[in-house]
Design a binder for these strands. Structure first.
Lengths: 203, 203
DNA sequence: ACTACCCCCATACTTTGGTATGGGTGGACA
DNA sequence: TGTCCACCCATACCAAAGTATGGGGGTAGT
């Protein structure tokens, strides 16, 4: 069995490698520290059985990486490993095509069970999610451009800088910022940044 | 040898346990998911040789946990395990009494080397920090009132609201905000909030 | 073809943010 | 006693943020 593990912390990768090797001696484990490398490895190893993907990666957003993986390798099941247990995150990951969601505070037994379930063709999600699905997706309510602006907003940029960066008029940026604030139900840009952080909408 | 590992992700704990056990068969590893449990275990096991502490824990701040550990067990060396590689975080941890700092993206070899160094009575810090030490404590450079204002700033409040809350004139609040921004070396309030978060100066 | 969005721009306006000066109090310390 | 410093206030000014209105162009769905 061949599994690709994507996580930016090599300590975590090595530890998990030991856990998996102990439980499943037949396993071949590939490791990637970021999504770019993960895509390379997935391309180079068509016989992959599973991908374990950490959501909060530096550089490319975990969701974006998930989307690309599911896009390029639709038959390859991806299980999300995440420190987050937010329902919105889990829901979104599953919407994008993930076959499972394992919180990082799960035990190794729980994780292994989830992996087995996914390898058997199932979908593994924590109980918390089953209870009530589809609370809605803030991300979907933000347009592409609004997300672009919000990402720069979340870095503390002024409207003028954002305009320069995205090659827009300042007035247009202001319009987007106003729309973002209305959608997030806040009254100034700092609160918008805080809300974005809470909802993992930054970056 | 007896080591206490404090991290909220049990997957990470189990993985690291395997790594440590593989490298050092004589090791006894205790695990705690939070600082409260960590303090209990440290009290119950006076023969502890080392504590491995994750910085970003839920509930009690990692820094706060570090402080309490160093307070109650001055002879017990604490090595910080953190996803952060920010110099300010490392500096702050060392100021509080940590004996080492291991980034989570270190290899297990690097980590083991750091642990050995600390057990030998040394201090283990990544090279990046050695280069330039003692930028030191932003906290000290902020006055009490500035911290009050920053705390509200970090909630996205407007100057007028802050003034009402602290019963000050808006002009006074502006003065504090300006001073804060100068101290944090940023150019607007949103960046000040972001910097405060990075340096754990919010709240 | 019509509608509905999304995206872009401009102008004008009000409010807030941020800077600069200057001045006042009280506590700490040599 | 004089000096430093944290803290407070006022006024004024310019820059930036945020709101409102109106318009143009593209694309997708009915």
């Amino acid at each position: 069995m061949k599994v690709l593990l994507v996580d930016d912390h090599s300590l975590f990768r090595e530890g998990l490698a030991h856990v998996l090797a102990g439980a499943e001696p037949e396993i071949t484990l590939l490791q990637a520290a970021d999504c770019v490398r993960a895509l390379e490895l997935a391309t180079a190893h068509p016989d992959l059985d599973l991908v374990l993907l950490d959501l909060n990666l530096p550089g490319m957003n975990g969701f974006e990486g998930l989307q690309r993986l599911c896009d390029r390798f639709p038959a390859l099941p991806v299980v999300i490993l995440s420190a987050s247990t937010r329902r919105a995150d889990m829901q979104h990951a599953l919407d994008l095509g993930a076959m499972g969601f394992v919180p990082k505070d799960a035990t190794s037994q729980q994780m292994l069970q989830s992996l087995r379930m996914v390898l058997a063709g199932g979908v593994a999600v924590p109980a918390a999610l089953v209870r009530k699905a589809g609370v809605s997706d803030w991300r979907a309510s933000l347009t592409d451009r609004q997300r672009d602006v919000l990402a720069l907003l979340a870095r503390g940029m002024a409207n003028k800088e954002i305009a320069r960066t995205l090659d827009l008029a300042e007035a247009t940026v202001k319009m987007h910022v106003t729309a973002i604030m209305r959608l997030l139900d806040v009254s100034n840009r700092t609160q918008a940044v805080l809300a974005a952080q809470r909802l993992h909408l930054d970056q």
